[in-house]
Lab assay of single mutants.
Amino acid sequence: WKITIYDQENFQGKRMEFTSSCPNVSERSFDNVRSLKVESGAWIGYEHTSFCGQQFILERGEYPRWDAWSGSNAYHIERLMSFRPICSA
């Protein structure tokens, strides 16, 4: 599993790669995730830290803005603060 997060939209700004769970992006000096690329595996992104709040399934691909992973939710969530890989047995 591999995911790359960015602190600006369209894959700009600070970037960081992960191959395992991140319970709080702010502990990695990110205020928020504004864009991301899922390089391999599937991940679950969460609205809040500690894997809480609205969940987003993140499959392999590029997500240049928050609405790319938020989709058409009843209330739009511009925040992604934690994530972890989906492990299959």
Rank of each mutant, 00 (worst) to 15 (best):
S20E: 14
W66L: 08
G53V: 05
H76W: 07
W1E: 11
D7F: 03
A89S: 15
S70N: 15
S82A: 04
S21Q: 09
E47G: 06
Y6M: 00
S26C: 12
S29F: 09
P23C: 07
M16T: 07
G13F: 01
M81D: 04
E27S: 09
V33L: 03
E62V: 09
F51S: 02
W1M: 14
Y63D: 01
R34I: 02
V25I: 12
F83I: 05
T49G: 10
D31M: 09
S88A: 15
G53I: 03
N32G: 08
E62C: 10
H76A: 13
S40L: 13
H48Q: 12
V33R: 00
F30E: 02
I57C: 09
W1H: 13
P85G: 02
F30H: 02
F51P: 01
K37S: 08
W69P: 06
N10R: 07
M81S: 08
E62H: 07
I57M: 10
Q12L: 09
N10A: 08
N73C: 15
E59A: 10
F83R: 00
H48C: 12
S50R: 13
D7P: 04
Y63I: 09
F51E: 02
E39Y: 10
N73V: 08
N32Y: 13
W69F: 14
P85Y: 02
Q55G: 10
A89Q: 15
S70I: 09
F56I: 14
R84S: 10
F56D: 04
Y63F: 10
R34H: 04
E78N: 13
S29Y: 09
Q54K: 13
E78F: 07
I44P: 02
M16K: 10
R28W: 09
R34S: 05
S21L: 07
D7Q: 08
P23Y: 06
F18E: 03
F51M: 03
Q8R: 10
E78G: 13
R15K: 13
A42L: 12
R65E: 06
G45M: 11
Q55L: 02
F30S: 02
Y46V: 04
S88N: 13
W43C: 03
W66E: 08
Q55M: 06
G41K: 02
S29I: 05
H76D: 13
Y63P: 02
S20L: 06
L80K: 03
T49E: 15
W66M: 13
E47Y: 00
N24F: 01
R34L: 07
Q54E: 15
A68M: 08
G13Y: 00
L80H: 01
K2T: 04
I44T: 06
R65F: 06
K37E: 05
G41W: 02
S72T: 14
E47H: 05
I77E: 10
Q54W: 05
E39N: 10
P85R: 06
I77S: 14
T4L: 05
F11G: 00
Y46N: 02
L36T: 06
T19A: 08
D7I: 02
K2R: 05
N73W: 05
K14S: 10
M81N: 06
S35V: 01
G71I: 10
Q54G: 10
R84V: 05
D31Y: 08
N10I: 03
R65W: 03
G71P: 13
S20W: 05
I44R: 05
D31L: 08
I44S: 05
R60M: 13
N24E: 03
S40M: 07
N10S: 08
Q12S: 10
F51V: 01
I3V: 04
G13N: 01
W43D: 02
N24P: 00
Y75Q: 11
I5K: 00
G41C: 03
Q54T: 12
N24V: 02
I86T: 12
E62R: 07
H76Y: 09
W1I: 12
N32F: 11
E17C: 08
S20K: 14
Q8T: 06
F30R: 00
G45R: 00
F30D: 00
S70M: 13
I57E: 09
Y6G: 00
R34F: 03
E9H: 05
A74K: 14
E27G: 08
T4K: 05
F51R: 11
S50E: 10
V25Y: 04
Y75F: 12
F83M: 05
A68F: 08
A42W: 07
H48Y: 08
I57Y: 07
E62W: 06
V25T: 06
T19P: 01
E9M: 05
F56E: 07
F83S: 02
T4F: 12
S35M: 00
D67L: 08
R65Y: 07
S72F: 09
S40Y: 06
I86K: 13
R60Y: 06
E39M: 13
N10P: 00
N32P: 11
E59T: 07
A68W: 06
R79F: 07
C52H: 14
N10K: 09
A42E: 15
D67A: 11
W1Y: 15
W1V: 12
G53R: 01
D67N: 11
R79E: 13
A74H: 14
D31T: 08
W69S: 06
R28S: 10
S82G: 02
I44M: 10
V38M: 01
I5R: 00
K37G: 00
R28F: 11
K14Y: 06
I44G: 04
S72K: 14
E17M: 09
D31A: 08
E27I: 05
D7L: 01
E39L: 12
R34Q: 07
Q8S: 09
V38K: 01
Y75S: 15
S35R: 01
F83A: 03
S29Q: 09
E59D: 05
G71Y: 09
P64N: 11
S21N: 06
I44E: 09
S21P: 13
V38P: 00
E47K: 00
Y75V: 15
E59I: 06
E39D: 11
P64R: 09
K37P: 01
R15A: 13
S72P: 12
L58S: 03
I57F: 08
R15M: 10
G61T: 00
W66N: 08
S35I: 00
C22N: 03
C87D: 15
H48S: 12
W43V: 02
V38T: 01
S82N: 01
A74W: 08
E62Q: 07
N32L: 10
P23I: 07
S50I: 08
K2A: 05
E17W: 07
